[in-house]
């Protein structure tokens, strides 16, 4: 089945990010297609490579990046939500005159249209939130 996933909460504070990650892993393992994972609200915080969880804890962002690389996943961070929360890619950092970017490998920043398109294209959109 062609699936899309919406992640509405950031890592660590809410389990929703873990649940989404585990859901995507399980879906891929079962042979389902993940059309897109869209990160909204505090969910955009899944996409910063600057977070440093303790070494004996899971690193959710690193796991997303690894999963994206292994399975060519499309991980999209909402630009409006990302700007509010300081998540920038190289282009946005330049455009906004910021000194650096922090987007993690495998993630890209784009608009809310990508979420609606995912809802249209996928057979199911699964929402992970609080």
């Amino acid at each position: 089945m062609k699936l899309a996933v919406l992640v509405n909460e950031g890592p660590y504070q809410h389990q929703a990010a873990d649940s989404a990650l585990q859901f995507v892993k399980a879906a891929v393992a079962k042979g389902h297609e993940i059309f897109r994972v869209f990160f909204y609200h505090d969910g955009v915080n899944n996409g910063t490579r600057f977070a440093i969880p303790p070494q004996d804890d899971r690193n959710i962002t690193v796991e997303w990046s690894k999963l994206a690389e292994e399975h060519k996943l499309d991980l999209v961070v909402c630009i409006a939500a990302a700007q509010r929360r300081g998540i920038l890619d190289e282009n946005e950092a330049k455009r906004q005159g910021k000194s650096g970017d922090n987007i993690a490998p495998g993630f890209r920043i784009s608009g809310l249209g990508q979420l609606i398109e995912a809802g249209i294209q996928a057979e199911r959109l699964v929402v992970f939130g609080d």
């Binding site: 609200h41 809310l112 249209i120």
Partner: peptide
Amino acid sequence: YALESLEVVLIAAAFDQ
């Protein structure tokens, strides 16, 4: 949540769904 949800709805309106 409410404010950002409204932003989604306004974008969604452009998709003729």
